[in-house]
């Protein structure tokens, strides 16, 4: 008997009484204004929020960050650098600009599709991260989020909520553990 068979037959042998699967409601929001709540949540997470109806400021940020290293962007025509998929080159990126598909107001998380990126590690490897998110793509909570996000359609996808952080040394919060040291969320109106 293989281990697979052993495990499955052991479970079979227990013959557990079936328990019903509950219905999960979507639940209401905590605020009338989910945008304001989302921005407030991002502030709490130490995220810089920029709301704009054009690309100008975004291009400026890229230019500024290029002074300290290369900038990758998954969005074309912003003046970012060309990137070869090379570990060392990616590790030296100063900024990674990526597209967010959906923002979640209750926790400040933003969904990113791995396929949109030249390499999956671009969600974490650059010193700084900038996520561009359309203004209308914000939902209230995680239940609502999963009605839009189909993670199975993506080999890799991730909810990112703020810059990477750790509190493993005496519970002192430090931003920039292994992933981005800072996060800018650029909301496009």
């Amino acid at each position: 008997m293989t281990s697979r068979e052993k495990i499955l037959s052991a479970i079979e042998g227990i013959n557990l009484p079936s328990k019903e699967l509950p219905i999960t409601p979507i639940f209401e929001g905590l605020s009338e204004d989910k945008h304001a709540f989302f921005f407030e949540m991002l502030n709490t997470l130490g995220v810089e929020v920029i709301v704009s109806d054009n690309d100008d400021q975004l291009k400026d940020i890229i230019k500024e960050k290029q002074q300290d290293g290369k900038v990758y962007s998954s969005i074309p025509d912003l003046g970012a650098d060309d990137l070869t998929v090379n570990k060392d080159e990616m590790a030296n990126l100063n900024l990674s600009v990526i597209e967010g598909q959906l923002g979640v107001a209750e926790n400040g998380a933003i969904w990113v599709n791995g396929e949109d990126l030249k390499h999956r590690s671009l969600t974490a490897i650059a010193s700084h991260l900038l996520i561009v998110l359309p203004y209308h793509k914000i939902v209230w909570n995680m239940h609502e989020a999963y009605t839009y996000i189909k993670p199975q359609d993506h080999g890799y996808g991730v909810f990112i909520s703020g810059p990477s952080k750790t509190a493993d040394i005496e519970q002192s919060l430090v931003k920039g553990a292994h992933g981005a040291k800072s996060l800018i969320v650029y909301i496009q109106k």
Binding site: N107, A109, M142, Y146, Q152
Partner: peptide, 24 residues
């Protein structure tokens, strides 16, 4: 949706962990 809402809030009081990485 249910578990990600509960996990980090219970663990550290964060609304969600910084990265919730989905692999398929």
């Amino acid at each position: 949706g249910v578990f990600l809402r509960l996990l980090a809030r219970s663990a550290t009081g964060q609304a969600i962990t910084t990265y919730s990485s989905h692999f398929h």
